[in-house]
């Protein structure tokens, strides 16, 4: 298995694709930065697992753990707090998860930040990038709440475990779902299994009537989901007009999650509270708490500009552009050949 998992013509097309992304940002005066892939700290998310490694030559003389980044978010925010202005980065990110059709544990991420943008403005710019690089139709926009109402006929912001479980019985007899204690897990299950595969699909009804029909990219429009529940805010600001939702959005295209973005949280105290709440959830789930990134907190305290940021999975985006069926065909060597 010395041979690449992608063909050479595909890898050449990838090179042109990456150049187009850089051209897009150059035309908008967003400059390219590089930040460390190895970090002293990592994210506290319950559902994100970072690789770590040992560093034997620290100035303290002690052996210490360094983490491979799950995204360049914290380091880029420190640049923003140091008055970098609008910046982007194309970098490797790592997530300790099973490889699959749409995921390789090591992957390429595009991330960018725009001072004075909110989530709405940044979604529009991401839509522009999609049209420029992979020639999509203009995206459609759907709030998280409206997506559940349209596809599953209930309001995800006014629900509870009992109602969710009774809705789920219409779709699955899996016992663990009935024993689940987190509403967010059940919402994520319904979203992943019942909504995501249909987002932006023009003939959703026809497709379910005719499952044999082969879908082509013409059948799809990119679809933004915005205003996630505040309980899934991650690093986004909670909305001032409706405290049930946060300024977080995701982008879906051809049934694949391509991007996640925030109108960024600036409050260091709120950020610390969220890190601690995440760690409490980790401990409750029997996972180790993660070290909190005090450099990020200090940068927020010093002052993060009002800004929005988004991370895009480049391997996935390129895979869809080329009509590839497996992410291994979009990268030179997948993890089994690395």
């Amino acid at each position: 298995m010395w041979q690449p998992s992608a063909s050479i013509p595909t890898l050449k097309a990838r090179s042109i694709f990456l150049a187009a992304i850089r051209q897009f940002f150059a035309s908008k005066d967003v400059w390219e930065v590089e930040t460390p892939i190895l970090s002293n700290n990592t994210v506290t998310d319950l559902h994100l697992d970072a690789f770590n490694t040992q560093f034997n030559f620290d100035v303290t003389g002690e052996q210490k753990s360094l983490f491979l980044q799950t995204s360049p978010e914290f380091a880029m925010k420190r640049l923003l707090a140091a008055d970098s202005g609008a910046i982007f980065q194309i970098t490797k990110a790592f997530r300790h998860e099973a490889a699959g059709r749409f995921h390789n544990p090591e992957f390429t991420m595009l991330e960018w930040y725009r001072p004075d943008f909110d989530d709405k403005k940044l979604m529009a710019e991401l839509d522009e990038l999609l049209q420029f690089t992979i020639n999509t139709k203009p995206a459609i926009y759907l709030s998280y709440q409206q997506a559940f109402i349209d596809y599953l006929s209930f309001d995800p912001l006014a629900t509870n475990l009992t109602e969710l479980k009774s809705i789920i019985t219409k779709h699955s007899t899996d016992e663990w779902l009935q024993q689940e204690t987190k509403t967010d897990t059940l919402l994520q299950w319904l979203f992943s299994m019942k909504i995501e595969p249909l987002l932006g699909l023009h003939s959703a009804l026809n497709a379910s009537e005719n499952p044999e029909k082969k879908l082509s990219s013409d059948d799809w429009t990119p679809c933004f989901i915005y205003d996630f529940p505040a309980s899934q805010a991650s690093l986004a600001k909670v909305s001032q007009s409706d405290s049930r939702v946060a300024h977080r959005f995701e982008l879906y295209y051809q049934g694949v999650e391509l991007a996640n973005g925030f109108y960024e949280l600036q409050d260091n105290k709120e950020q610390l509270r969220r890190f601690n709440a995440d760690n409490a959830l980790r401990v409750q789930a029997g996972l180790p708490a993660k070290p909190i990134d005090n450099n990020l907190l200090a940068a927020l305290e010093s002052g993060l500009p009002d800004c929005a940021g988004v991370a895009v999975g480049i391997d996935r985006l390129f895979m869809l552009k080329q009509n590839l069926t497996h992410i291994n065909q979009a990268i030179a060597f997948d993890v089994s050949r690395a």
Binding site: H47, E97, A98, K182, T185, Q188, M193, E257
Partner: peptide
């Protein structure tokens, strides 16, 4: 077997 992993959420196997 397919792994379904929302970027910020619980992972599932379908």
């Amino acid at each position: 077997n397919e792994n379904v992993k929302p970027g910020k959420g619980q992972a599932f196997n379908r």
